[in-house]
Computed example of a mutant assay.
Amino acid sequence: MDQVKAMKVFVRIYERSSFTVAAEDLNLPRATLTHTLNQFEAWLGTRLLERSTRKVRPTLDGEAYYLRCVQ
């Protein structure tokens, strides 16, 4: 897994609050973003984003990690 790519995927999903919009921004299939984020969360050992059928929102760990990513 490319950690830098995974961080970029996470940041874009976080900022857009949408897998679909983030996928369009990154010109990648939505399934690729889902797979990348799932692998990244497993590697980190924590859930970064809470997902529902209508919303994507960060967990507390996700908020903290986002702040580190953008620095």
Score class of each variant (00 low, 15 high):
M1P: 15
M1K: 10
D2Y: 05
D2W: 06
Q3M: 13
Q3P: 15
V4T: 15
A6D: 09
M7Y: 06
M7W: 13
M7V: 04
M7I: 06
M7H: 10
K8C: 00
K8W: 04
V9Q: 09
F10C: 01
F10H: 01
F10G: 03
F10S: 01
V11H: 08
V11C: 07
R12Q: 10
I13S: 08
I13V: 12
E15W: 02
E15R: 05
E15P: 00
R16F: 07
R16L: 06
S17L: 11
S17Y: 14
S18H: 04
F19H: 08
F19A: 04
T20Y: 15
T20H: 15
T20I: 12
V21S: 13
V21Y: 14
A22G: 06
A22I: 00
A22V: 01
A22N: 07
A23D: 05
A23E: 02
D25K: 10
D25M: 10
L26S: 09
N27M: 10
N27E: 11
N27K: 14
N27A: 10
L28Q: 08
L28M: 09
P29F: 10
R30E: 10
R30S: 04
R30N: 07
A31L: 12
T32W: 03
T32A: 02
L33S: 03
L33G: 06
L33E: 04
L33R: 04
T34W: 15
T34P: 14
T34Y: 11
T34E: 13
T34Q: 11
H35K: 11
H35I: 10
H35R: 12
T36V: 06
T36M: 05
L37D: 00
L37Y: 02
N38W: 08
Q39R: 13
Q39Y: 12
Q39L: 09
F40H: 07
F40R: 01
F40M: 02
E41M: 08
E41H: 09
E41C: 06
A42C: 05
A42G: 08
A42S: 05
W43L: 09
W43R: 12
W43S: 07
W43V: 02
L44F: 03
G45Q: 07
G45F: 05
G45N: 05
T46M: 03
T46Y: 08
T46F: 08
L48E: 00
L48F: 07
L49N: 00
E50P: 13
R51P: 07
R51K: 12
S52K: 06
S52L: 02
S52C: 02
S52E: 02
T53K: 14
T53I: 08
T53V: 12
R54I: 04
R54V: 10
R54Y: 11
K55H: 10
V56R: 15
V56C: 12
V56D: 08
R57G: 08
P58V: 09
P58M: 02
T59A: 08
L60P: 15
L60S: 13
D61C: 15
G62T: 00
G62E: 02
E63Q: 09
A64S: 11
A64V: 04
A64Q: 09
A64G: 02
A64Y: 08
A64K: 13
Y66G: 00
Y66I: 03
Y66E: 00
Y66Q: 05
L67S: 14
R68E: 13
R68G: 10
C69E: 09
V70Q: 05
Q71T: 14
